[in-house]
């Protein structure tokens, strides 16, 4: 079999929030969509997420946040990526995000926000389109 290029995605849970269901489901779903998914578990600091994203050379960082701290945590990750010269990595956010915060996240540079009820196939299609468009 010929080796081929794979889309690599980091699914990360920043902060102390321990609700992992969404992250797990998305990780499984993206694996089954043919992506290489790096899952780092709970309690990741923004610094850890940024370092992992750069070392693993991922195309996408997916942040799963359900504790209401999405604005500050996402900002820290995006700043860190910028500092590490990795601002081209696509950042996506999933979890409990009130509608009014979505434009603010996008202003920060988040590619898309996926809230409850989003099919995983929508996430994988979005990623595939975004990554191949580059």
């Amino acid at each position: 079999m010929e080796p081929e290029s794979k889309i690599r995605v980091l699914i990360a849970k920043p902060g102390l929030d321990g609700h992992e269901r969404g992250a797990h489901v998305v990780a499984y779903g993206l694996r089954d969509a043919g992506f290489e998914v790096i899952y780092t578990g709970l309690r990741q600091t923004p610094r850890q997420i940024v370092n992992t994203a750069i070392q693993e050379d991922v195309d996408v960082v997916g942040l799963s946040i359900l504790c209401g701290a999405h604005l500050s945590l996402t900002q820290m990750v995006i700043n860190g990526l910028k500092e590490g010269g990795a601002e081209d990595i696509l950042v996506l956010v999933g979890g409990i995000v009130p509608e009014e915060d979505i434009p603010r996240l996008k202003e920060m540079g988040v590619g898309e926000v996926f809230t409850a009820g989003t099919p995983v196939s929508a996430v994988s299609n979005f990623i595939r389109a975004a990554v191949s468009a580059s």
Partner: peptide, 18 residues
């Protein structure tokens, strides 16, 4: 708060923003 739930104080690096 999650900081307390996870056994940290407010000055822990894990506490930032929480």
């Amino acid at each position: 708060d999650l900081v307390t739930q996870c056994g940290y104080d407010s000055d822990s690096p894990y506490a930032e923003g929480e």
